[in-house]
Design a protein around this nucleic acid. Structure first.
Lengths: 119, 119
DNA sequence: CAGAATCCCCACGGATACTG
DNA sequence: CAGTATCCGTGGGGATTCTG
């Protein structure tokens, strides 16, 4: 089976997808939902430093991409849960790998940044 | 063995790393160098739509992070080759997965964007 | 060929405060 | 609790031109 989409092509929709994935907070939110549904405040607390506005925007974007589902249980005080859809969980796999890589190779990069060794 | 770095922590250097990875063109450049060393113009041609300025910036950043090596063969006309370092090649693994995912799931996302089915 | 130099711009994201 | 509303800055990225 040949490729239907090629990221290297300027007009390919997969670039948009990649752009979304690369968005500042996407990976954090997806990873934050890895272990199951979570409420807005719980996510916000878990991802240190994210502001409510940005979290909302990120969640909305992921929702419209079909990666995240929003369940509103109504009532007062409000109760809303966010969870990964099937599609979202499938993204979790490559993203977890990226996160792993980032956390693993921090020292190598910090090293490289301060010195300039031969490869 | 416990985690030394945690992406969810606001001050963790791994966030910087993640930011670099997420930068607009990083993934394209790394993937473009997957098959071996390439010259500036070759990369530029391969990644449709990238401008020389942005390519230079991206390459410099990756170089200073120790992900890419720059070999200048001098002469005239100039001859410069870029290649992935060991570290760069290790990043290639998770990034290739992300790219795969992007190219594979474009239809799902396009679908989700135009309709709002019940997950 | 491999870039450096310039100019430009807006949209991504941050801070803060407020509300149903 | 789960968001809005507002304001704001900045730097990442784009287009174009030029050069050793």
């Amino acid at each position: 089976m040949s490729k239907a989409y090629d990221v290297m092509a300027a007009t390919c929709p997969s670039r948009t997808v990649l752009h979304r994935i690369g968005a500042r907070w996407t990976i954090f939110v997806v990873v934050a939902l890895a272990d199951g549904p979570r409420r807005f405040t719980a996510i916000k607390t878990h991802i240190e430093g994210i502001t409510p506005k940005v979290l909302t925007e990120t969640l909305r974007a992921l929702e419209s991409d079909g990666l995240v589902r929003r369940d509103d249980f109504g009532g007062n005080p409000p109760h809303v849960e966010y969870s990964l859809t099937q599609l979202g969980r499938s993204l979790l796999v490559p993203l977890a790998a990226v996160r792993e890589w980032a956390e693993t190779h921090v020292p190598d990069i910090l090293d490289a940044q301060s010195s300039r060794p031969a490869d």
